[in-house]
Design a protein around this nucleic acid. Structure first.
Length: 682
DNA sequence: TAGGTTTTGCT
DNA sequence: GCAAAACCT
C-alpha cells in the first residue's frame, strides 16, 4: 500500500517495538523511517523536568539500539515546531506516509491535529493508532452514548465491554530502512552539566528502555503482584509495581500489561486464591485510573488547569510562597509529609500512598492552589504524567464528582503510624529525627523535652514546629468553604438573573499563576506563556483521517452532552469552524475503508448534526466489518478562538453544570448506587 | 453481646 | 455520601 515511498513512524510516548501499531503498520507498508522529535517548547508550561528528561534520554538510546539491530536507526530532530520538522523529514526522505500513535493531552491533541492537516494537504497519507489505552476514550460510553463522569462507572464499563482490547502485537523481526542519507539526526541535549551528577544516581535504581520495561513487568507479575493488596499500606515497601515511568513513555503497552495480568487473574481465581484476586483487581484498578486520566483529559482538556467541579473556582486559595517552599523542602514539621517530600526531591519517586498524604496536606492543611502542587510533581517525578497527575490532584482537591469530601482533613500523625508504623521511613529521609523513639516519631511536637534532647532535636532549630496546626487548618478550611459556597451561590444567582453570563469574571476563572521560582523554567518564549496560542488558527474539530471502526454503542444519535442547559464543556467551544471541519473530515476521501468521525468531544450546536449522522452511519457500516481496528482517528479538540481565559467561560461550572455541588454529588451517587455497583468483576 | 456510633476509604 | 470496618459500651 506504500506506493513508492517509505513511511515515517513518528515515535512520541510509545518508545517500544512490541505492540506498537504505528510501527507494525509502517513495516507492513514497506520501508520505515523511525523518527523522534524533541520539541520541549511545544509543551508550554509543562516541559519535562530533570528526571523525566533523564529517563527519556535513556529510553531513546535504548530504542535506537533496538531499531539498529533490526536494520534502521532512530532519527532524532531538535525542533521548535514538530510539524515543520515532520515536513522536513518528509522532504529529506521522500516519505509518502506518516504513522503515529495517539496521545490525549490537550497540547498533543492540537499538535497532532495540525500535523495531520498540514501533511495531508501535502499529499502525505497520515494514519494514527491506539497504542496507549485499552479502549479509545470515545469507545467507552454509558447507555445513552455519553461519557461517564465517575471512575467506577467508567471502569466497570471498561471491564465489561462487548469486545476485548486488541491483542498485543509482537515486535518486528526486521525492519526495512527508508533512505535517511539526506536526513541526519540532530544531537539531542536532555541534561546540562549541573544535572549530570544528580542524574548519575538515577541509573543505579532504574533501567529505562522498552525491553527492560518488559523484564520489569514479567518480574512484577510473577513476584510482587500477588502481594500487591496486602502491601499497599506501607510507605517504603518495594511492593508497588514501579512500572509507572515505563508506562508514561510507552515503553510498556497497557494492553499487554492487561493481558498478562488477566492470565494471572484467571489462574488465581481457579485456585481460589482470594488475596491474589484482590491484588489483581487492585492493580488493574490502577491501570484503570491511568485509562481514566486519558479519558478525562480527552473529554475535559482543561482538567490540568481547572477544577472539574465549578464551585472550586471560588475557593480562596492561600497564595503563600513560604508555605509552598516549606512543603517542597520537607520542612512542614509533619514528619511523614516531610519524609515524603525529601524522598521525592532526592529520588524523583514517591509511593502512591505518600503522594496522597503530601498532596492532601498541600490542599487541605496549607490550602495552597492545587495546580502549584501538580506542577511541582510534574517537575520532579520520574513518572511525571500530566494526565495522571491532573486526575490525582483533582481527586485530592475534591473537584471530581466522585472525589473525596473537601472538608475532611487527614491527620499526618495518624497516617504516619498507619503507613510507617515503626518510623523507618521517616528516619531514612529525616536524619535529624533518626534518634527519636517510635512513640514520638510522627508527632515530635508532643514529645517531652527530655526525649527531644536525648534525640538531639531542638524544635524550631533543627526540625520545625508544625507549620500550621491542624485545628487552625480545620478552622481556616471551614471558613474558606463557607466563603466558597457563598460566592458560588452569588455567582449562580447572577447567572440566573442573566446579569452575568460570560466574560464578567475572567479574573476569577483564570488560574492562579505559578510562583516565580517555579516559573523560571519557562517563559523566554512567548509561546510558552500561552501554550494554546500555537494552535489558535486551527479552529476545526476532530480530524479523523481514515478507516477503522470505532464502535458506538448507542443506537440513537443522541445529540448533546450531559446537560441541555446552555452551557458547554470547556473543550468544546461554540465557535467551531464547520467549513474547516467538513473539509478536514469528509474530504479525507478514499483512504482505505470507511471514514470515521468521532464526536465524543464535540459539542456543536448547529449544523453539526449532519456530520454526526454521517459519522454514525459510517460507523454502523464499519463495525459490522472485520476486526481491523488499526488505522484510526486522531483525537483532536479545538482550541479557543480568542484568548486563553475566554476558554474558561464555556465550562463555567465544570462537570456538574449549573447544579450545585450537593446536587451534583447526589446525582452521581444515586447513579452509582442504583446500579448496585458490583465491587469487582469477579 | 448485640447494638449503636465513629472512622476510613473512595480517584 | 455511602458502605464497611473499627470502635465503643
Amino acid at each position: 500500500m506504500s506506493g513508492g515511498g517509505c513511511s515515517i513512524v513518528w515515535f512520541r510516548r510509545d518508545l517500544r517495538l512490541d505492540d506498537n501499531p504505528a510501527l507494525t503498520a509502517g513495516m507492513r507498508a514497506g520501508a520505515v523511517v523511525a523518527l523522534f522529535i524533541w520539541a520541549p517548547e511545544e509543551e508550554g508550561q509543562y516541559q519535562p523536568g530533570r528526571v523525566s528528561r533523564w529517563w527519556l534520554k535513556q529510553s531513546l538510546a535504548h530504542l535506537d539500539s533496538s531499531l539498529r539491530s533490526l536494520g534502521t536507526p532512530l532519527i532524532t530532530k531538535r525542533s521548535a515546531d514538530s510539524v515543520s520538522s515532520l515536513l522536513g523529514v518528509v522532504k529529506a526522505t521522500g516519505a509518502t506516509q506518516l504513522l503515529f500513535n495517539h496521545l490525549y493531552d490537550p497540547l498533543s491533541l492540537i499538535r497532532d491535529h495540525r500535523a495531520k492537516e498540514v501533511l495531508t494537504a501535502q499529499g502525505i497519507a497520515v494514519r494514527s493508532f491506539n497504542a496507549d489505552l485499552l479502549y479509545e476514550p470515545w469507545e467507552v460510553n454509558d447507555a445513552h452514548g455519553q461519557a461517564f463522569t465517575t471512575f467506577s462507572s467508567f471502569w466497570e464499563r471498561c471491564l465489561n465491554m462487548p469486545y476485548d482490547p486488541e491483542a498485543p502485537l509482537l515486535p518486528p523481526k526486521r525492519i526495512i530502512a527508508g533512505d535517511v542519507s539526506k536526513c541526519p539526526s540532530d544531537t539531542l541535549v536532555f541534561e546540562d552539566e549541573s544535572e549530570k551528577a544528580s542524574n548519575a544516581l538515577l541509573a543505579r535504581a532504574w533501567s529505562p528502555g522498552w525491553s527492560n520495561a518488559d523484564k520489569a513487568l514479567t518480574a512484577f507479575i510473577n513476584g510482587p503482584l500477588i502481594e500487591y493488596s496486602k502491601n499497599r499500606r506501607k510507605a517504603d515497601s518495594a511492593t508497588t509495581s514501579f512500572l509507572s515511568p515505563h508506562l508514561h513513555f510507552g515503553e510498556l503497552s497497557v494492553k499487554k500489561v492487561f493481558h498478562l495480568v488477566r492470565i494471572k487473574q484467571v489462574l488465581w481465581a481457579n485456585e481460589g486464591n482470594k488475596a491474589g484476586e484482590e491484588s489483581v483487581n487492585l492493580f488493574l484498578k490502577s491501570i484503570g485510573l491511568r485509562e481514566y486520566s486519558r479519558y478525562i483529559s480527552f473529554n475535559h482538556p482543561y482538567s490540568h488547569e481547572r477544577p472539574l467541579l465549578g464551585h472550586l473556582k471560588f475557593f480562596p486559595w492561600v497564595v503563600n510562597e513560604g508555605y509552598f517552599k516549606a512543603w517542597r523542602q520537607g520542612r512542614t514539621g509533619y514528619p511523614l509529609v516531610d519524609a515524603g517530600m525529601r524522598e521525592l526531591w532526592a529520588t524523583g519517586w514517591l509511593h502512591d500512598r505518600i503522594r496522597v498524604v503530601v498532596s492532601s496536606f498541600f490542599v487541605k492543611v496549607l490550602q495552597l492552589p492545587w495546580r502549584w502542587g501538580m506542577k511541582y510533581f510534574w517537575d520532579t517525578l520520574l513518572d511525571a504524567d500530566l494526565e495522571s497527575d491532573a486526575l490525582g490532584w483533582q481527586y485530592i482537591s475534591g473537584t471530581l464528582p466522585d472525589g473525596r469530601e473537601f472538608d475532611r482533613i487527614n491527620n499526618p500523625q495518624f497516617e504516619g503510624y498507619k503507613f510507617d508504623p515503626n518510623g523507618e521511613y521517616v528516619r531514612r529521609w529525616l536524619p535529624e529525627l533518626s534518634r527519636l523513639p517510635t512513640e514520638w516519631i510522627h508527632h515530635p511536637w508532643n514529645a517531652p523535652e527530655s526525649v527531644l534532647q536525648a534525640a538531639g532535636i531542638e524544635l524550631g532549630y533543627n526540625y520545625p514546629f508544625p507549620i500550621v496546626g491542624l485545628d487552625a487548618a480545620k478552622a481556616r478550611l471551614e471558613e474558606a468553604l463557607l466563603q466558597m459556597w457563598q460566592q458560588e451561590a452569588a455567582s449562580r444567582a447572577a447567572i440566573e438573573n442573566g446579569t452575568e453570563e460570560g466574560l464578567g469574571d475572567s479574573s476569577e476563572s483564570a488560574p492562579i499563576a505559578f510562583p516565580p521560582d517555579i516559573q523560571m523554567e519557562e517563559g523566554h518564549d512567548p509561546v510558552r506563556n500561552n501554550p494554546l496560542s500555537v494552535a489558535q488558527s486551527y479552529e476545526d474539530q476532530m480530524v479523523p483521517s481514515i478507516t477503522s471502526q470505532v464502535r458506538v454503542e448507542d443506537e440513537e444519535a443522541s445529540s448533546d452532552l450531559r446537560n441541555s442547559t446552555g452551557d458547554s464543556r470547556a473543550e468544546v467551544p461554540m465557535n467551531v469552524n464547520l467549513q474547516q471541519n467538513a473539509r478536514g473530515t469528509l474530504n479525507q476521501g478514499p483512504n482505505e475503508g470507511t471514514l470515521q468521525v468521532v464526536y465524543r468531544n464535540t459539542r456543536i450546536q448547529n449544523g453539526a448534526s449532519e456530520l454526526r449522522n454521517a459519522a454514525e452511519e459510517s460507523t454502523a457500516e464499519s463495525s459490522s466489518s472485520s476486526s481491523r481496528r488499526d488505522g484510526g482517528v486522531v483525537p483532536v479538540w479545538s482550541p479557543p478562538a480568542s484568548s486563553y481565559s475566554d476558554q474558561f467561560v464555556g465550562d463555567e461550572n465544570g462537570i456538574g453544570a449549573s447544579s450545585s455541588f450537593l446536587q451534583t454529588h447526589r446525582q452521581s451517587h444515586q447513579l452509582l448506587n442504583w446500579r448496585g455497583l458490583p465491587q469487582t468483576n469477579s
